[in-house]
Simulated scan of single mutants.
Amino acid sequence: MNALSGAFEWLTTGANWQGERGVWHRLAEHLYFSGVCLAASVLIALPLALWLGHIGKGGALAVNISNVGRAIPTLAVLVLLTLSPLGRYGDAPTLIALVLFAVPPLLTNAYLGMREVDKAVVEAARGMGMSGGQLFLRVELPLAYPLIMTGLRSAAVQVVATATLASMAGEGGLGRIITQGFTVQNTPQVIAGAVLVTALALLVELLLVVVGKVCDPMRGRAARAV
């Protein structure tokens, strides 16, 4: 109980939120790592997954490879990259490790979303004379959208949580609050850092749920159908 009350006191102390070691600065670093890695992962995984799902070839191999990637410990990859020549390039090891971690859920969900589109609907669209591009944009993509967003939410939350490990490589982010707490044996600070990471991950999840509902391409069609 003392540790929890100490964590609350740490979080409500204004001095802990200011300066280069303060929460706001660490939060900005954390959002930078997470945002850059998630954007890079989307650019890598989504075009490939959507294309493979559309043509119906090669996707199973890509999904199996991405699933193998999930089994590789992120911390181990981060340490190896940091000790490699890439370690000379500042944030590069952390960014690469987080991208490798975020690609599998994006790739798998987007591909499965495309492949699970009802074949009868696809054939009906072809029968109406739709081109491949029209079929992709007006039928397959809208119907695959829920699974695509599920993959995006999963990747985003995982990246936000795993970006905490950046502190192990000497980088910034909210993880530094936790590691500094361990260094000085300040348990309330460790708990406070963990609370901040958890709160950020939950906030990102909630935000993407709202964005997913607002941007759902089937939302307007459902409303018109009613």
Score class of each variant (00 low, 15 high):
M218G: 00
I191A: 07
T13C: 01
T187D: 12
D118R: 13
K57A: 14
P47Q: 07
G173K: 03
M114V: 07
F101A: 12
N2L: 14
D91L: 13
A76T: 10
T13N: 13
G35S: 13
V23H: 03
C215M: 14
R26A: 13
V42M: 14
L135V: 11
E116A: 14
H25W: 10
Q180K: 03
P104S: 10
L202D: 06
G212K: 09
A156G: 10
L203P: 02
A222I: 11
V23W: 05
M149G: 07
A7W: 04
A49I: 08
G133S: 10
A45D: 05
V122M: 09
K119W: 02
L202I: 12
V159A: 10
G173W: 02
V210E: 12
W24Y: 11
A155E: 04
L81K: 05
G56R: 08
T150K: 04
N2Y: 01
P217C: 08
G87A: 12
G53Q: 09
V210D: 02
R70N: 10
G170P: 06
G19Y: 10
F101C: 13
L106C: 11
Y32P: 00
L202G: 06
L27N: 08
G14K: 04
L43Q: 03
A7D: 11
L165Y: 01
L46M: 13
V226S: 11
K119A: 15
V68P: 00
V99R: 09
L100M: 15
G193N: 05
A192D: 03
V157K: 03
V122Y: 01
P105C: 08
E205W: 04
L4D: 02
G14N: 08
F8Y: 11
V23E: 01
A223L: 15
G151E: 10
M114R: 03
R70W: 04
A120V: 11
Q185Y: 13
M1W: 12
M130V: 08
R219W: 00
L48V: 15
I191K: 05
S34F: 03
G6S: 11
L50G: 01
A110W: 05
A120I: 09
L46Y: 06
N2E: 13
V63Q: 06
F33G: 02
G173I: 05
K57N: 02
L137P: 00
S41F: 05
V160H: 01
L95R: 12
G59T: 07
L50P: 00
H54Y: 10
N67V: 08
A144G: 03
A161W: 05
G22F: 01
M218N: 14
F182D: 00
S66P: 01
L196K: 05
C37A: 15
A45C: 07
A222K: 10
T12E: 01
L137I: 08
T187K: 06
